[in-house]
C-alpha cells in the first residue's frame, strides 16, 4: 500500500479523533470511575486509592437492603403513575388542540412554561401551595366550609399524591408538545380517506391517529420513563422522601447514602444499578426502531425489484 493510500485510509479517523477524545473524558471516564468506586468500601474522608477493594459486596448488600429495595419500589410506582398520567393528559390535550384555533401558538407557549422552570423552584412553589394552613389548596378547602384540610405532605398516601401532581404539572407539557407535533405532521390525506371511508371522530383518533403516532409516542414514553426514574429535586424539596420512606425515590436514596451515610461505594453501586436499568430501556428502544426500519427497507427493496 502506498503512503498516499495509507494516509487516505486514516483521514476519516483523524476527523473523528477530537470528538472521541472529548467523549472519552467527558463520558466514559466518569462512568468508569463510578463503576470502579462501586467495588470499594470508600468514605469521603479517604482518597480513592486508600479505599478497600471489596468486590461485589456493595451489590450483594443492596439486594438485602430493605430501605433501598423500598426506594426502588417507590421509584417504579412513581414512574409508572406519573408517566401514565402524563401520557394520557398530554396526548388528550394534543388531540383537543389539534386544530386551527386562533391564538394556538400563544396557548402552546403558556402550556410549556412549567417545563422551563427549574425543578427546585417547582418544588418550592408546590411546597407553599401544599402548606397545611396557608397553602392555597387547604385555604380553599376551608373557605368552602370543610373543617379539615388535606395533610398533603404529612400523610404517606397524600404525600405520594402530592409529588405525583407536581411532576405531572411540570412534565405533561413535554408530552403535549411532542404529541401535538407528531399529530400535525400526520398525513392529512390518510385522515381524509378515513373520513370518506366512514370513520367518525373517535374512530379516526383510535384507528388512525394514535397508531400512526405510536413511534413518536413510544420514544416519548421512554424518554419520560428514563427521566422519571432519575427524579430528585422536586421531591427533595417537597417531602425529602418522607414521611417515613413513602416518597424516597432511588435518586434521593443515592444522595442520602453518599451525603448522610458517607457510603460512597454503596452509592456508586446503586447508581450503577439504575444506569444498567435505564440502559436496558434505551437499548431496547433503539433495537426496536432499528429492526422496524430494516424490515421495511428490505421489503421495499423487494417490492421495487418486482416493479422493474
Amino acid at each position: 500500500m502506498s503512503a498516499v493510500a495509507r494516509a487516505n485510509r486514516l483521514t476519516p479517523y483523524m476527523f473523528l479523533a477530537p470528538a472521541t477524545v472529548v467523549l472519552v473524558f467527558a463520558l466514559l471516564y466518569p462512568i468508569g470511575y463510578m463503576v470502579y468506586a462501586s467495588f470499594l468500601d470508600w468514605s469521603p474522608s479517604q482518597r480513592i486509592g486508600e479505599a478497600d477493594f471489596i468486590g461485589l459486596r456493595n451489590y450483594a448488600n443492596l439486594l438485602t437492603d430493605a430501605a433501598f429495595l423500598e426506594s426502588f419500589w417507590v421509584t417504579i410506582k412513581f414512574a409508572a403513575v406519573v408517566v401514565t398520567l402524563e401520557m394520557i393528559i398530554g396526548v388528550g390535550l394534543a388531540l383537543l388542540l389539534d386544530r386551527n384555533i386562533r391564538g394556538l401558538s400563544l396557548l402552546r407557549t403558556i402550556f410549556i412554561l412549567p417545563m422551563m422552570i427549574a425543578p427546585i423552584v417547582v418544588g418550592l412553589m408546590w411546597r407553599y401551595m401544599y402548606h397545611p394552613t396557608v397553602g392555597i389548596f387547604n385555604r380553599t378547602i376551608k373557605n368552602l366550609g370543610f373543617e379539615q384540610g388535606i395533610p398533603w405532605l404529612s400523610d404517606s398516601t397524600w404525600s405520594f399524591i402530592a409529588v405525583v401532581i407536581a411532576d405531572v404539572w411540570q412534565w405533561t407539557p413535554f408530552i403535549f408538545i411532542l404529541a401535538l407535533a407528531a399529530m400535525q405532521s400526520l398525513p392529512r390525506s390518510a385522515l381524509e380517506a378515513a373520513e370518506i371511508d366512514g370513520a367518525n371522530e373517535w374512530q379516526k383518533i383510535v384507528l388512525i391517529k394514535i397508531p400512526l403516532m405510536m413511534p413518536v409516542l413510544i420514544v416519548t414514553l421512554l424518554l419520560r420513563l428514563i427521566d422519571a426514574f432519575k427524579v430528585l429535586e422536586v421531591i427533595m424539596v417537597l417531602t425529602n422522601g418522607g414521611p417515613g420512606l413513602s416518597t424516597e425515590i432511588v435518586a434521593l436514596r443515592i444522595f442520602r447514602t453518599a451525603q448522610e451515610f458517607q457510603e460512597l461505594g454503596e452509592a456508586a453501586a446503586m447508581s450503577n444499578l439504575l444506569l444498567i436499568m435505564l440502559m436496558a430501556l434505551t437499548i431496547g428502544m433503539f433495537m426496536y426502531t432499528k429492526i422496524q426500519e430494516a424490515r421495511t427497507a428490505r421489503m421495499l427493496k423487494a417490492a421495487q425489484a418486482e416493479d422493474e
Binding site: 390525506s189 390518510a190 381524509e192 380517506a193 378515513a194 373520513e195 370518506i196 366512514g198
Partner: peptide
C-alpha cells in the same frame, strides 16, 4: 363525507401506513 356514499382515490394514495 361518510353520509354521501362515495369512494375516493387520492393523489398520494392516502393509504393507512
Amino acid at each position: 363525507p361518510k353520509a354521501r356514499d362515495l369512494a375516493m382515490v387520492f393523489q398520494d394514495y392516502a393509504l393507512y401506513p
